[in-house]
Nucleic acid binder design. Sequence first.
DNA 1: TTAGACTGTTGACATTTGTCAACATTTTAT
DNA 2: ATAAAATGTTGACAAATGTCAACAGTCTAA
Lengths: 193, 193
Amino acid sequence: MLMHQLHSYLNAYASNPVTDEDFEIIKSHFTNKTLRKRQYFLEEGEICKHFAYIIKGAMRKYHVDDQGKEHVVDLYIENWWAGDLESFVMLKPSIYYVDACEDCELMLITNESKIKLCSQLPSFNQFLLKLDERNHIATQRRITSTISSSAKVRYDDFASCYPEFLQRFPQHIIASYLGITKETLSRVRSQVS
Amino acid sequence: MLMHQLHSYLNAYASNPVTDEDFEIIKSHFTNKTLRKRQYFLEEGEICKHFAYIIKGAMRKYHVDDQGKEHVVDLYIENWWAGDLESFVMLKPSIYYVDACEDCELMLITNESKIKLCSQLPSFNQFLLKLDERNHIATQRRITSTISSSAKVRYDDFASCYPEFLQRFPQHIIASYLGITKETLSRVRSQVS
DNA sequence: TTAGACTGTTGACATTTGTCAACATTTTAT
DNA sequence: ATAAAATGTTGACAAATGTCAACAGTCTAA
């Protein structure tokens, strides 16, 4: 079982370690799922019933505009969470697709379970707050970079911040994440830094 | 006292109303502050010791790049929170400025108080989670819009999503928030929708 | 009240980035 | 094994946006 990965992960965010008993409770609220490369986890119009903790693999979230163009909004690898929060908490049909960029092993949780765990285990609540904090900070940096910098600088920032991602996602997906075309990314990469 | 505004605001986010006793505890952790238009709440290099709940007024957070250009990262009005979370929780010098775009009345809280309230009052913890959720969702939409759409569409989205902001912030600040120049915004506005 | 800052618009031109097409390699599915 | 799909690069050109300068109206502080 790869469950222990979630346990270490939770501990990394908690101020005090999560006890084995608490972890048993947490574990009981998750289910396992595997996805093959290119399979959908979520499709536009669906309600996001689960959030996915990624044990292994890589995923992306993207939006398809009126002209049918894909825009990658998020990239995820091991120890990240995939899903559409807006749909998950508001029970609204999602405007996003989430799919697997590699074969994936996931652990899924429903919103009811999340709420139950929050009220039952203060450490879980605390964990979620820390997670949101971290997420908020990363997003803030991303927005700053997006509105302030040229394509080249954005790519360099991304590459130095998430070097692994360069190995794991194809360039056209990274380009889309950065809000530029694959051609522009290709050209930007061939410039010296 | 305008404290009751915070109380209603908290209630709007809680699943059960915040009792008067709980609110007394919460209130005791806040201090009041006023800012005149154009005064700083936070300057680059400082540690963000307080987060500000805005009772009245309007503020912005911005970043100054190597070439001395300002890039507005966030806009805030009544019932929003202003500050730099990264600096606040990590005690790192901030890379942002936060200043008042109108005369402001604020209620300030430190990170220690926030942590204390979280552990003492589950309802406060819950409140923060909801707030982060809402913030996360809004930010997700903003990123989607920024990487997917032209200047005109971004402005129209912004205008329909935050019509008040058009009245309260000058155009060059909105332009910067949208990641475009004031000249481009001026031109985009003169096109018919 | 007055000079200076702040705000907003417009024109001419430069730069960045996108679009479309062609092509080569690699990976994937049958 | 083979065809199709996915990935990545390049060129020619188009479109979007930025830059800089000039200008005018409004607000603000001494």
